[in-house]
Design a protein around this nucleic acid. Sequence first.
DNA 1: TTGGAATGTCAACAAGGCTGACGTATCTTG
DNA 2: CAAGATACGTCAGCCTTGTTGACATTCCAA
Lengths: 165, 165
Amino acid sequence: MADVQSGENLLFLTDEQLRQGIEAMFFAYRGFTADPDLILTELAYGRAHHRAIHFIARRPGTTVSNLLSILGVTKQSLNRVLRTLIDDGLVKSEKGTADKRERHLTLTEAGEALEQRLSDAQRARMRSAYRAAGPTAVAGFRQVLEAMMDPELRRKYKAMRETDT
Amino acid sequence: MADVQSGENLLFLTDEQLRQGIEAMFFAYRGFTADPDLILTELAYGRAHHRAIHFIARRPGTTVSNLLSILGVTKQSLNRVLRTLIDDGLVKSEKGTADKRERHLTLTEAGEALEQRLSDAQRARMRSAYRAAGPTAVAGFRQVLEAMMDPELRRKYKAMRETDT
DNA sequence: TTGGAATGTCAACAAGGCTGACGTATCTTG
DNA sequence: CAAGATACGTCAGCCTTGTTGACATTCCAA
């Protein structure tokens, strides 16, 4: 097999390049969570709370089972987090009108405020990284990340963009 | 302020774009760890073991304190993981010759074998993502990730590339 | 009317973080 | 050479967040 046509010997696909990509993901993810983590610790919450808050903010009125499918944890695990958020008055849980078994989750004012704080911190870092790298790099960044997702999660990720203009 | 020259109103820096970047990181990281996780579960290990193995493989003979600074955990936490790996015969710990206080960590043959297995699985996904996105996208991906790291970790990340040709 | 879906909850357990404290070599420096 | 600093290991206890398993309730839909 000739080396050019096969596409196997391209420089950016060497094991060493891939390994560097792996390490980049590892170190970058640390930075990605660092800023919200500071705020969360201060409030005695963890990343699990952040995730729940994020996706409730993103899809107000979402149901528990939808959240479960996005977060990929057990309902017991989610419920523990959700319970503290509800008890602390950050999340509101309301019985569905169409299907009364469902609970629709929304953020209270206090919840919105915290979401904003967490989101601001995280976006500030993203913004500075995006700005440093430039629009072309950002497009590539998004492409690679999307290609890295499990198909099922990619579907959910894309669906999340559709309905928000 | 004119909107073009300021650089603040660029499409790729809108809050919505940043938010999508955040979600992309979240979902992609799940994919990133999914394949090794399967192997690890089967062996009753966790991600913490994987991280230790990875960086020992990357820097054979590295010391405990160097590993600590890369992983960003406490020595108690690292030690628990390291202990099981040593007891299971995957990692070898040897007193330093120059400085006898230090322990130099290397993978045994069995350790190398596991590292290879984990690394193969993780690289396979990276490779397929890289191939799907193309070299330009990959360059952008790397740039954004690097810009997202904490300065201290970026330094370590870069240092990790220098001495391996 | 009956099976299954959506939810909540209790209990128990494990991984893997953390802090604090202490001990022991070993190196370095005044 | 003595004293302090460094590198490492370890004991003990705590927290978050994940897991499994079991059980109850409510409600939709065939």
